[in-house]
Write a protein that binds this DNA or RNA. Sequence first.
DNA 1: AACGTTCACGTGAACGTTCACGGGGACTCG
DNA 2: CGAGTCCCCGTGAACGTTCACGTGAACGTT
Lengths: 347, 347
Amino acid sequence: MWADSEQHELRDGQADRPRRRATIHDVARLAGVSRQTVSRAVNDKGEIDPVTKERVLEAVRLLDYRPSRFARGMVRKGTVTTGLVIPDLMNPFFPEVAAGVLEAAEQRGWQVVVWDSRTDADREREALDVFSHQADAVIGYFKNDDAELGRLLGGVPLVLLERGPQQTRFGAVGIDVAAGMEQGIAHLVAAGHRRIGLLDGDGLSGPGPRRTAFLDEVRRHGLPVDQGWIVLCSEHSVAGGAAGMSRLLEAHPEVTAVVGFNDLIAIGATRTARRHGLRVPEDLAVLGFDGLSLGELVEPALTTLHIDKRRLGMLAVEQVARLRAGEAPLTGADAWVIPQLVVRASA
Amino acid sequence: MWADSEQHELRDGQADRPRRRATIHDVARLAGVSRQTVSRAVNDKGEIDPVTKERVLEAVRLLDYRPSRFARGMVRKGTVTTGLVIPDLMNPFFPEVAAGVLEAAEQRGWQVVVWDSRTDADREREALDVFSHQADAVIGYFKNDDAELGRLLGGVPLVLLERGPQQTRFGAVGIDVAAGMEQGIAHLVAAGHRRIGLLDGDGLSGPGPRRTAFLDEVRRHGLPVDQGWIVLCSEHSVAGGAAGMSRLLEAHPEVTAVVGFNDLIAIGATRTARRHGLRVPEDLAVLGFDGLSLGELVEPALTTLHIDKRRLGMLAVEQVARLRAGEAPLTGADAWVIPQLVVRASA
DNA sequence: AACGTTCACGTGAACGTTCACGGGGACTCG
DNA sequence: CGAGTCCCCGTGAACGTTCACGTGAACGTT
């Protein structure tokens, strides 16, 4: 009967390494059954004789058969894959956002492909180019403008992280920076500070919400404003913050408090200040903006505006879900995370 | 001619939200061309009149058409997807490993689907179950034993992180813990320590390489050994280390140095020790095992055995590549990362 | 003996692309 | 005017699964 053919296939299978992956058909031939029966065996469906099943499974093992996820995806829908673009995996902020995305995605049975853009616009574009073909939706941080984004991934739903919902034609999930800054500046003012500096991020795409919110609040409290008190940190890292603080200290030693673009920058600032002989917070108060758990480990523990990063990620997934369902995306407070002031020791 | 049909399709397309995603065929009909021409337009191939192309693209926009990645994957091979299973995204160690994996994968044009197992065996199994269908290979940390792993993902290449290459029948990439521990203990001994404790991880799957290496080295130096000096930290975190240190201090205040399972645990230990009034390193030396950049931020800066986490991840991808090519996986030193002692302030 | 049921399995079709061809029209050149 | 060339476009096939059926055998029921 099919014994011949099996023998042949057997030899064939182990002779040279298979240049083409075995298909369900190969297995069927080797086991002497039909495709459907093979399918039943590998998918643990019913309607199959245990003996036959074992024989099929043996053939599967022999040929190292694995069903093609493409062919499978073609016929039974449902596998959703979303791309996640992160600017810097070394900054603890982003893994936590990612954790939120992963958790929410898993609950829906979605998969998440992660891409580290390292804050490089070209690498962003690469990611988008790939995802436009391979993903059902994209979540991420982007420096490229809307037009470019739209052009690159034409049609694929996109949810932007940390951009005001108004600023973009895609879905967005953001941080209510203004609300955060309000708490932060109020705290500093209450402590008697009047000359407050800002260690801002790279001002590549204009002032950015942190700076505007900072200026708003400072003005609202009737404090003096000096453009020299705002220094840009090209790197959003401890080193970047340290460098920024050096420049600030040199040019404007009169500031008595600084708020950092993020916790890493604030920590870098603290270290530089101390190295310059300043006591924190007595001589210089430092306020972070992130709420990294790392902040409670440093000396002095960092006072900061804590952001629920996990929630941020989960909200983004929810936005994607709405986009995909054709519903209107969340807006306003529903799509925002509000920072909470956490008072520790540095301010 | 096709004007009718276009009108119809037009109305049809925007009337109610499409319950079934538009296919290349729909676009072809609407644009009045063949599938192939649509394909040419979407994929920027040549052999198409610019005018026709624009018309097709317009139809694409109208119907919100996006090519099915499954159908595409069927016909043109090459998209490789590997799964990455990480136990804890909140521990800075793992994002860095992930960064290495991502970088190496990107160079090969592979995609990486990330899964956070949160050190839960059940969640590991879920991941494996999904990946066995959806991935071409898997990299990750696993508590499940080989038999279970093999059963779950039957046939999919697997590369284990941080298991000795001998301990498993899959590919593996590891850390030369013995070499690291040798440097670490030597350093402590040179500083005059004789009663050294170990804040080990959870001893779920037996002693683990760190403990064995620790005991080996301690014995080799002829130091006294007390089982009470080894305490288990169920959580591999700062909190876990703090708790472990509390127990150690209470029962065995005679130890003058401890080495932590990882940096987080070591940092937790340091904090507890200081809270108990001990000076670090004068009264108690603390040695970490990881080399997190966070270690230089804490007070006192953590002396640690630095692991090249990024390289670890990249090696894992290389292993996958070999497995897929049918080559023999790397073994021995080629598949190991050797820790480097970084002396800072805590020991 | 006729009929329904269950079990184990096979057959054609469909999923949505791209690839390898093939063909017709316009234009050029001898 | 015929032949050659280029440009643009369409047709059948193939990719590897699963789904919805259909079929025949064995077994029981009336």
